[in-house]
Amino acid sequence: MKRYLLAVLVDNKPGVLTHVSGLISRRAFNIESISAGYTEEADVTRIHIVVSVESDNELRQVVHQLSKLIDVIKIVNLTETESISRELVLIKVRATRETRADIINVVNIFRANIVDVGPEDIVVELTGGRGKVDALCELLQEYGIIEIARTGAIALSRGAIPVKEM
């Protein structure tokens, strides 16, 4: 399985997310994450989808089928262009008097932030690529992760040309 990050520009209209998610489930595409948000243009929403596919042909199918949706304006495969991708993760990890210092050490090494501390837990915030996020989660595993919230990846291409002009 290969993973690709697609930036999908869509009309900011009601029903758009239903159309996109409905298509993904109908065509039985595998997606790892999906995130949506406003853009520099008020009437355009940007959706990032991380798909995992078996073949180039399957990837083409995903792109072609998504392109057919009337409210999809543009799709760019950011994995195949020079791009920076980030994901935000919040991790609530169990922390005791004995382990707190260790956890803080790990957090510092990863240049992550501690955003909340309680008597039994610490909430860690990390922004980064997928590999970094996975590595931190793995390290914190031994202290006991209580819960994780991840945004899914978002990305921008490098250089002055925006996705809508690609």
Partner: peptide, 14 residues
């Protein structure tokens, strides 16, 4: 209706 008909229409509106 728009939810139900999304997979079986070219497009739909509410």
């Amino acid at each position: 209706v728009s939810g139900i008909t999304t997979p079986i229409t070219k497009h739909n509106y509410l």
